[in-house]
Design a protein around this nucleic acid. Structure first.
Lengths: 247, 247
DNA sequence: CGTGCTTTTGAAAATCATCAAGTATAGTGG
DNA sequence: CCACTATACTTGATGATTTTCAAAAGCACG
């Protein structure tokens, strides 16, 4: 199977940005329809297979990325191999945060990942012509900063049980926004495209603790686990309370 | 003692921004000297006593802040009182990150704190006239995001010993930039204006663990503790290795 | 229907937290 | 200036959550 398929969109005809599902969700939404052609000329579409990396920590930051489908994980490594996943990114999210022109995280596809790649200098030039783009980027950065601080609270002060509950509730919110309403009873279906090891590395736990904790939540009737890549939240309200440390 | 002394600068005469030590360090550096008057008209200078709060998590975000002297701590609380300090901010740092118009962290003075307060809508208007300001804000946000991810790695994957070493080394870098060179031998002096409890809440530990770990580092000759609010890094290189998990 | 990898489960060990004194420090009033 | 009190920090003993080590079970792939 051909992985990391590069395609220069202009060559393919059809304006990709116009019909992009992720556009309203993403910073690209700041560009008016009549200007989309310029954006499209800059975008390189890539499709990656699960596990494939596309950014390495410490590399010079030459591109920005915008996810149009699938999920990516961002992570940092310690020299001895310990790994911390700093976030999962999905449709509409903007990637490529760097300090001093160097990427601060590595990034890898979780499942089949579709993304738009922009050259940094070119996008910077575009920002000068479209201040709305920059404004949107700033809002996105602040919103990510808020999420990062929530994760800092989780890692610094929450128990394993609270971490798992927080994780499931947060995923529920993300998927719940777009898709299904609360469902018949209160049950909410959440997809888990990432592995247990990924979850552990995201929550600052070991894979064994993640597994045990999920088992316990299942035994208490708070969740159902139909298969490895999904969870049904049986009592979202109680889970939310657990996530806050109230139960 | 009068705390939280409000002063409207324009009333005081003299253009405050022109002579501000923090300006080159901060986002205000984006404003050309000839335009500083406009910035100064927006700024309200505040001085806070140690322990005084000036932002509460969940409050509507009406202001931005810029620290001109002293140190602030940003933190989040769980309903049962557990506290996580998400960061310490000092001279030149820009505060007021919010998502959906609501502050995501509370903020409090560590020591005597001097800050400039800007009305959000007014600063937004200023941003439209000075795109450089917005660019600088974006860079600041990205740089903070990088720091947040470093902290996530620390909280998720480092031991107590590694956390303390990371903390001391990071403080050393911050103070070391501006002030003293490496010193006679390799020793580097680091100020600790915050309490041990603050350090614990920043590193996701208890106060006892912080104390014990510092004692051990001292016994090993890696640091000296002349008094409660300072530490001498005797072997910065070795500490740096410990911080990375190499020793 | 194996084979290999991921996940789950179990037992032992370790780090860090909690509980409980003791010691230093700072601030206050005599 | 010194004693006194309150607060902050340090040190010690115990305990709990989580990790580590080890093996069984489940799933996905050929």
């Amino acid at each position: 199977m051909v992985a990391s398929l590069y395609r220069l969109h202009p060559a393919l005809g059809a304006e990709p940005c116009v019909s992009c599902d992720a556009r309203p969700l993403s910073v690209c939404g700041a560009i008016a329809p009549r200007d989309l052609q310029r954006l499209a000329e800059l975008a390189v579409v890539r499709v990656l297979d699960p596990g494939q990396g596309f950014v390495a920590e410490g590399d010079p930051a030459e591109h920005f990325f915008n996810i149009t489908g699938g999920m990516a994980k961002l992570f940092k490594l310690l020299p001895d191999g310990r790994r911390q996943i700093t976030g999962f990114a999905s449709e509409g999210q903007f990637l490529g945060i760097a300090a001093d022109g160097v990427h601060v995280c590595s990034a890898e596809a979780v499942d089949r990942l579709h993304l738009c790649q922009f050259s940094r200098p070119k996008l910077r030039r575009l920002m000068e012509d479209f201040p709305a783009l920059e404004k949107r980027l700033l809002d996105a950065a602040w919103s990510e900063l808020g999420a990062a601080q929530e994760q800092i609270l989780l890692l610094g002060r929450k128990t394993a049980r609270e971490r798992l509950a927080s994780f499931l509730v947060a995923l529920g919110r993300r998927s719940g926004c777009a898709s299904r309403p609360p469902a018949p009873d209160g049950t909410l279906r959440v997809a888990l495209p990432m592995s247990r090891q990924d979850i552990a590395d995201y929550l600052g736990l070991t894979i064994e603790t993640v597994s045990r904790t999920l088992t316990r939540l299942r035994q208490e009737g708070l969740i159902t686990v139909p298969d490895l890549s999904a969870v049904l939240l049986r009592e979202p309200a109680r889970l939310r309370r657990i996530a806050e440390g109230l139960a």
